[in-house]
Computed example of a mutant assay.
Amino acid sequence: MATLTQTGSTSAAIPAAKGPKPIHGDVRDVGRQSLVYLFLLVPMAALAAAVPFAWTTGLLSWTDIALSVGFYLLTLHGVTVGYHRLFTHGSFKPNRAVKITLAILGSMSVQGPLITWVADHRRHHAFSDKEGDPHSPWLYGTSALAMSKGFWYAHMGWMFEARNTTNEERFAPDLRRDRDLVMIDKLFWVWTVATFFLPAILGGLITMSWMGALTAFFWASLVRVSALHHATWSTNSICHMIGERPFKSRDKAANFWPLALLSGGESWHNSHHADQTWARHGVKRGQIDTSARIIRIMEQAGWVTDVKWPTPERVAKLTAD
């Protein structure tokens, strides 16, 4: 039986599967599945309309840009530093305030409740690019048609399957024992409401106008959420299809530099799959990794400890021949 530890990498933060617990969780009911469609497709429609909307109306102000960039960076790093490097892989130990803040900011990315997201991602590492992986682009074959289908599935199609859920008891039992995280997970709807309406409220207050609130809602809420969705999803799709593979891993994860800035350093994906626990994914000189920089700042401030930085010895050992 496959476990949650990955061959050739350190995964102490990910508990091994115990007993015959199934991979999949309960099938999502109609209500929950409808919300998946709503919060993925409505922001995506706004993203698709963004350029023609700005071109034809001119309704894009510096306030909208500032709010969009600000909320993008906050929620991006809530996912990359919080959801991913902390809660999924245990790359560092935070104090309680940092833990709670990162969990809330990650929730405000509207990528799903914390425990669900972590369970899905740990399952991905357990079965990376094999049967059981919730979003591998290689599940249909290697022909052009199969890869096109695989790209769509890995990028976002997997989320539309009500049966493609993950057993949280098997893949995230540690999070289910943390009262703070369970409460934040249950209040996911609150963080979703906040992420959509806070930019609008701020836009209205800054401009002292209803139009300022409306355009901020369009750009800093809808467009920003969808842009972040696609940046994250590209790690699942593009970074398992094309790019460089300088490190040894048991799957097709690749480093894809054009996405490094937009993804907060997550697109150094081959490095990450070589050793899941590293707090820095861009391990080579010049590789942009803003998430690692934030972790370093928090470490220097004394807010986090036991950071798992890559060592020269470990990097050399995992470097592909």
Results as ranks from 00 to 15, higher is better:
residue 3 T to R: 14
residue 3 T to K: 14
residue 5 T to F: 11
residue 5 T to A: 03
residue 5 T to Q: 12
residue 5 T to C: 10
residue 5 T to W: 03
residue 6 Q to E: 14
residue 6 Q to P: 08
residue 6 Q to T: 03
residue 6 Q to N: 06
residue 6 Q to V: 15
residue 6 Q to R: 14
residue 7 T to N: 12
residue 7 T to C: 11
residue 7 T to K: 14
residue 8 G to S: 14
residue 8 G to I: 07
residue 8 G to Y: 07
residue 8 G to V: 12
residue 9 S to C: 15
residue 9 S to R: 07
residue 9 S to L: 12
residue 9 S to E: 13
residue 9 S to N: 06
residue 10 T to M: 09
residue 10 T to V: 11
residue 10 T to W: 11
residue 10 T to Y: 13
residue 11 S to H: 04
residue 11 S to W: 04
residue 11 S to A: 13
residue 12 A to P: 02
residue 13 A to W: 02
residue 13 A to P: 04
residue 14 I to F: 04
residue 14 I to L: 09
residue 15 P to M: 09
residue 15 P to F: 12
residue 16 A to E: 06
residue 16 A to Y: 07
residue 17 A to S: 10
residue 17 A to W: 01
residue 17 A to M: 06
residue 17 A to G: 07
residue 17 A to T: 11
residue 18 K to I: 10
residue 18 K to H: 11
residue 18 K to P: 01
residue 18 K to S: 15
residue 18 K to N: 09
residue 19 G to V: 09
residue 19 G to H: 08
residue 19 G to T: 03
residue 19 G to E: 12
residue 20 P to K: 06
residue 20 P to V: 09
residue 20 P to L: 11
residue 21 K to I: 01
residue 21 K to E: 03
residue 22 P to A: 06
residue 22 P to E: 10
residue 22 P to I: 03
residue 22 P to H: 05
residue 23 I to V: 15
residue 23 I to E: 06
residue 23 I to C: 02
residue 24 H to S: 08
residue 24 H to R: 14
residue 24 H to G: 04
residue 25 G to P: 02
residue 25 G to I: 05
residue 26 D to G: 06
residue 26 D to L: 08
residue 26 D to T: 10
residue 26 D to R: 12
residue 27 V to M: 08
residue 27 V to P: 01
residue 27 V to R: 13
residue 27 V to F: 07
residue 28 R to T: 01
residue 28 R to S: 00
residue 28 R to K: 01
residue 29 D to I: 05
residue 29 D to Q: 09
residue 29 D to K: 06
residue 29 D to Y: 07
residue 29 D to L: 08
residue 29 D to P: 15
residue 30 V to E: 06
residue 30 V to H: 01
residue 31 G to I: 08
residue 31 G to Q: 11
residue 31 G to L: 10
residue 32 R to I: 01
residue 32 R to V: 06
residue 32 R to P: 02
residue 32 R to K: 15
residue 32 R to N: 12
residue 33 Q to I: 01
residue 33 Q to M: 13
residue 33 Q to A: 02
residue 33 Q to K: 04
residue 33 Q to L: 10
residue 34 S to I: 07
residue 35 L to A: 10
residue 35 L to M: 13
residue 36 V to S: 01
residue 36 V to K: 00
residue 36 V to T: 03
residue 36 V to Q: 01
residue 36 V to M: 03
residue 37 Y to I: 04
residue 37 Y to M: 14
residue 37 Y to F: 15
residue 37 Y to Q: 05
residue 37 Y to N: 01
residue 38 L to N: 11
residue 38 L to V: 15
residue 38 L to C: 13
residue 39 F to C: 02
residue 39 F to M: 04
residue 39 F to P: 00
residue 39 F to L: 13
residue 40 L to M: 15
residue 40 L to K: 02
residue 40 L to H: 04
residue 41 L to W: 07
residue 41 L to S: 04
residue 41 L to F: 11
residue 42 V to E: 08
residue 42 V to D: 09
residue 42 V to I: 15
residue 42 V to K: 06
residue 43 P to I: 00
residue 43 P to G: 00
residue 43 P to H: 00
residue 43 P to F: 00
residue 43 P to N: 00
